[in-house]
Design a protein around this nucleic acid. Sequence first.
DNA 1: GATGAATGAGTATTCATTCAT
DNA 2: CATGAATGAATACTCATTCAT
Lengths: 192, 192, 192, 192
Amino acid sequence: MSLSGVGELGHGQVISSTNQLVGGVMGDRRAEIVQAAFRQVATVGFEGLRLREIAADVGIDHSTLHHHFPGKKEIVAGVAEYAIGLTSDAGSAGTLRGYLAHLASLLERAPEVFVVTAELDLRARRDPVVREVMARHLANWRASLRQLFEVDGSVGDVDGGVELVIAAVKGVQLAPETAGVVFGRLAGLLVG
Amino acid sequence: MSLSGVGELGHGQVISSTNQLVGGVMGDRRAEIVQAAFRQVATVGFEGLRLREIAADVGIDHSTLHHHFPGKKEIVAGVAEYAIGLTSDAGSAGTLRGYLAHLASLLERAPEVFVVTAELDLRARRDPVVREVMARHLANWRASLRQLFEVDGSVGDVDGGVELVIAAVKGVQLAPETAGVVFGRLAGLLVG
Amino acid sequence: MSLSGVGELGHGQVISSTNQLVGGVMGDRRAEIVQAAFRQVATVGFEGLRLREIAADVGIDHSTLHHHFPGKKEIVAGVAEYAIGLTSDAGSAGTLRGYLAHLASLLERAPEVFVVTAELDLRARRDPVVREVMARHLANWRASLRQLFEVDGSVGDVDGGVELVIAAVKGVQLAPETAGVVFGRLAGLLVG
Amino acid sequence: MSLSGVGELGHGQVISSTNQLVGGVMGDRRAEIVQAAFRQVATVGFEGLRLREIAADVGIDHSTLHHHFPGKKEIVAGVAEYAIGLTSDAGSAGTLRGYLAHLASLLERAPEVFVVTAELDLRARRDPVVREVMARHLANWRASLRQLFEVDGSVGDVDGGVELVIAAVKGVQLAPETAGVVFGRLAGLLVG
DNA sequence: GATGAATGAGTATTCATTCAT
DNA sequence: CATGAATGAATACTCATTCAT
């Protein structure tokens, strides 16, 4: 994998050629809209997400959004897909310690990714589409982590370890400044 | 401690005589309103919090809310104070293992407390009043946990352990079904 | 007459023994309320007149106002009666020049009296009660002025002179800083 | 000058091509809205000005108003600009007597123009935007009148005369039926 | 007389969405 | 594709008034 893409979250840029967000190659405008929405969510949450702001950010009229997406729901779904795409490539780190270090670095470089993920976790409780996306993501995440534990030759309760890592990562999302010490302690406890 | 009060979160009930939310004994109606708002947030989030719904839940006209609270902001602040009051009595558990067991039980009995806390964590990013309440709560939480670690005679990185527990609890808030295994693993790692 | 009473417009004071505003000797509280309302109108106009502000100014609960006045309409009527009482004693000045000098002085000492009168002139267009009060006041004013013209031995169009004085006074109400020059020119033209 | 435009204040009509209210050619809808608001103010004052009524008068949904104006404040500002535009062409009358005759005629044909001006004079005390518009208008008015006095070869206190005319016009605004006699007397006194 | 709780009609404003051009 | 006009339901908040205590 590569968490490449994160670095290109700048304003107005187009995501990579792998942006198959809603079932096909996404047009430039669609990608721009999703990314603008992503930035909005990172700033004001889903609570403050406004189509007019998204449109203004992209530089088009707000009614033009409906030429690219049927409605707000679909844009939110696009944000969910996009956000998990930015964190889902966990496996390639090789070791648990490497993975945690990678996450800590990402938290520092692009904390908004984790903020949006936290927003999505909450929204998933009410929005079936987001719930489905997040469930899929969680399954992948669990599988990746289990593999990592096995590679590490970790003994003991693997399932518990996996869930603990997931919980710690989620819990650290909203307080990035504690990421270093939390991941450090976690790695110390899990892999010695 | 005692997380008493949690069990009485039922619809329309009045909280106990210790409900000193804003610096004095809160009137019955004010408490009812805050609790109704709390329930609403647990269900639809701050995103979906509507004064009309709160009023309907309490059984009064929505304009009467403004007789008790100046506006929505103050009700939200009341919810924040109320919610942290329900989880802040951590210290009395005696041991870290006991504390985690207690939290697991609470998560099962009253998961909405944790959902609201997660909502508050996100809202704190935009709402200075909520941010202040949550910061105060976090400071107390840290102090309680540090004490718990010392009582346990825990060796090693106490600060890291405290932050790890906090992160794990926050991370588990949104997936209560993993609480048992996560807390079990965590206790196993931290206190042997 | 005497425009005495103007000096007693201070906060909370009771108006003179002639305060037969709505048909009887006005109780202290009623007078306080009317005067507080008068001050409010001088500041924020009828547009911004709020019963709660009046009550707060008097120092009572806003619902208590309805023990003294049936409703807002009646308080407004009281303000109208009170305001014209403060300017209606025109005749005693002896000469037109003296009267105009007197008005200029009053405009300087208590400009709010004229502001409220202007508000009343506009409100009279929509409020029959105020209209009736102002019509009565205008009739008295005309009679007083006509007498003044006759005493002065003024020749020429007396009616025109009277109406011109009234118009000039009304026109100057909202720009008190021009009162001196306007009244000076007017006196020069009318009485040589 | 020409106070043309006044005659076209009828319901729903579009003002002439010279309606440069906010610095450019105003869209038809914006002009319609301002004119409807103007009519409302003439009838019920700023005190009774309601966006819903304006919208109903224009024949659009009340939320559509916000597509053309950010809020009520801006509509009020538009009314101020519009109203002074209807009376600001004073200078072209040639003589003071001609000017006063013109005003008397206008007062008879379109008294609402003067009612709104009186409302604006009062509102200017609380609304900075309106205050600025009215101050500008007053300065122009004074300059026009001074010019008129000079053309007439008027002797004596020109400034006093100008202020007296202004006061008389303002004072007559609320009692149009006295306009004839007041202006007649005024002309008699000022230009013999 | 006085108070606090409650009401309900009303008020500007917001916002996703639709539609004709 | 894109725009601007328009919509209508929703939203927090206001305020005079009523009523039980």
